[in-house]
């Protein structure tokens, strides 16, 4: 407050010359709290409860690229066609390309947006299909597919993409082993910070 009134006075009394205008770019900034705990913190606070194994199992439904987290069960391409035609076709189209929502089939040049950044051309891991579908699909009734239905519909989607044979069976062993064409395309972020544009 005090500094401000001094500035205003000086502007008033020295006229309107540019050199006399208060400079605002170097305003003093409030120091932010450091990204750490207060030094007086105890070793642990103890707020919160223990998570039981049952509790963890209830929510720990994700699937890792090596297959960790895949449940038991299995499904065939033929079974998957049935699941697809009753539960997915309305949004993803008869052959997985018609929409109205995301294309599930595509093996064209994957750089062509938006046509081919899809399962068959772009996805690096088949396990991601399980992780995603079991959580998020079908979009209006997510989380309702059984493990068998999920394996089956994945077998069908992979088959439509030409990635597994007509008699393929998907389960916790075969799914992580599916070779995905997109696998070797991905490189981790190679921007290093600093002036370089990457």
């Amino acid at each position: 407050m005090k500094r401000l009134s001094v500035l205003m006075v000086s502007v008033l009394f020295t006229g309107c010359g540019q050199a006399d205008l208060p400079v605002t770019t170097s305003d003093v900034l409030p120091t932010e709290v450091a990204d750490r705990l207060p030094l007086s913190s105890p070793r642990t606070f103890g707020f919160g409860g223990e998570a039981t194994d049952e509790r963890i199992a209830m929510w720990d439904i994700d699937v890792k690229p090596d297959g960790e987290g895949l449940p038991s069960g299995s499904g065939t391409v033929a079974q998957g066609k049935l699941v697809y035609e009753t539960q997915c076709i309305a949004c993803h189209g008869a052959t997985g390309t018609e929409g109205p929502f995301d294309r599930l089939v595509g093996t064209g040049p994957w750089e062509e947006w938006p046509s081919a950044r899809v399962v068959g051309a772009y996805w690096p891991y088949a396990t991601t299909l399980f992780d995603y579908i079991v959580k998020a699909m079908p979009q209006l009734t997510p989380g309702t597919l059984t493990a068998d239905q999920t394996y089956a519909v994945i077998a069908y989607v992979l088959n439509m993409n030409g990635l597994v044979a007509d008699d393929a069976v998907m389960d916790a062993t075969t799914l992580p082993a599916v070779e995905m064409p997109g696998r070797d395309r991905f490189v981790p972020d190679d921007r290093k910070g600093g002036p370089e544009v990457r």
Binding site: V63, V119, Y122, W123, A136
Partner: peptide, 14 residues
């Protein structure tokens, strides 16, 4: 974990 949002989406073609 290689979720859908870090493979199919939010990746940058080079």
């Amino acid at each position: 974990t290689m979720t859908r949002e870090e493979t199919s989406k939010y990746t940058d073609p080079l």
